[in-house]
Nucleic acid binder design. Structure first.
Lengths: 231, 231
DNA sequence: AAATCAAATCTCGTATACAATTTTATCGCT
DNA sequence: AGCGATAAAATTGTATACGAGATTTGATTT
């Protein structure tokens, strides 16, 4: 959460980036030795970073067996998204009441930029603006505990939400999430905390339902390009 | 959270017990070497346990300086309790909708036992039943993420909420929290999720206000027996 | 006597070593 | 060819070693 080690922080980010970027997917193993060599440190700091990422639910450390990127079964994923929705809902409702004028201007900017990216079909930009939209609300809640909790929960479902959507061949409608963000943003700017909360919960829930359709029976993300080409 | 190491789990508990029991108070240092000798292991597993407890917010690891039991200033404590109230509120509202009949019977039992302990002035029993009441609701929410989050948040404010109240010389009115629990329990049993949530948020907030009065300017818990005897 | 600065001691962060267990590869058998 | 058992290799969990930075101690000065 808000620890504060030396270079452990950046190591944690480097490792979590492996997952966020999609290089490692749920179930993939993280070999301490290889990671140590890759990042030019010994196993000790690697292990500490892995330990923290396991605490936050992104990785899964199993005794005497390799750490893997955490896999969610259907029930666990439902719980993770339900909790995420509630926390994000809380952040949105507090943000509606507490955000500064500067925050509000920034929120408007992001929504405008998001609309442009959406119209242009710029998936990379839309993806980054999506993340920024949520970050603004986390920070706008003016509660570091809620903020950290929201970010941690978001990170842990990243392999199931963000990563698969970045695949080149995936063509989801960018306008659906954008319109939801727009409605949430409007409620926040109008200081309507109840509406902001409800819309956010609905937004996360929709996101979950969308993702659920991408999952096969094993809880694996369907490989679009690769698996379909081969099959 | 739901890691799953070998004996690291029990080590984590042993160390967190030092704080829960009040042996170590906010700001106290945790020396890795001493803990290693005390628990008969090397520094490595101690360090791993400390790392996890820092992630959960109970301890504070500062680069190149001793780990200490986390200290909250007034603002941070307010945020911690605000977040705790919201999460506990969510748990209570879900519990109202999802708890099994067996859970509900257990909840009634705990409330009855609590009333007895309250009437008899049995502070130890009242304290344990208080914890059990909250645990029932965490589990009753039927969401492991919310449950783990609530328990983690509760643990991190323990040095400020539970520990000081156990002091022998401290005579708070046991009936106030009991009546609040009673009202929350009633709402849960009647499946009134909105009421359960609101009452829980209020309950945690009251708890915070009560604790705030025990704090001096430095954010330290007032020493009742010791400091007053010496002064 | 109080304050200041330097040396010595202590503690942490990381690297390395080694035993225990798991995983992988090899070989033999049906 | 496929399956099972055994041996080799690899990986984890913990202990130990050591350098860098922090803390304490003590001497020196004002």
């Amino acid at each position: 959460m808000e620890a504060g080690e030396l270079k452990n922080n950046t190591l944690r980010q480097k490792i979590s980036n492996l997952i966020v970027s999609g290089e490692l997917r749920p179930g993939d193993r993280l070999d301490e030795q290889s990671l140590a060599e890759r990042f030019g440190v010994s196993r000790t700091p690697i292990r500490e970073a892995i330990l923290q990422l396991s605490s936050s639910g992104l990785l899964e450390m199993r005794p005497r067996r390799s750490t893997i990127v955490r896999r969610f079964n259907a029930a666990a994923l439902r719980e993770a998204f339900e909790a995420l929705g509630e926390i994000e809902g809380l952040c949105a409702s507090y943000a509606a009441l507490r955000m500064s004028e500067a925050d509000r201007l920034r929120l408007e900017d992001v929504l405008l930029a998001s609309e442009v990216a959406c119209r242009d079909g710029d998936r990379t930009a839309a993806f980054e603006l999506d993340a920024e939209f949520h970050e603004i609300l986390h920070e706008g809640a003016r509660n570091h505990v809620l903020q950290a909790t929201a970010e941690s929960m978001r990170l842990r479902v990243t392999p199931y939400s963000a990563a698969p959507l970045l695949a080149e061949d995936f063509h989801a409608d960018l306008s659906v999430p954008h319109l939801e963000h727009s409605a949430i943003g409007k409620a926040v700017l109008e200081r309507d905390s109840d509406a902001a909360r409800k819309l956010m919960i609905k937004h996360v829930s929709n996101n979950f339902l969308f993702i659920q359709n991408l999952l096969n029976n094993d809880g694996e993300i369907e490989q679009r390009s690769a698996s379909r080409a081969k099959a």
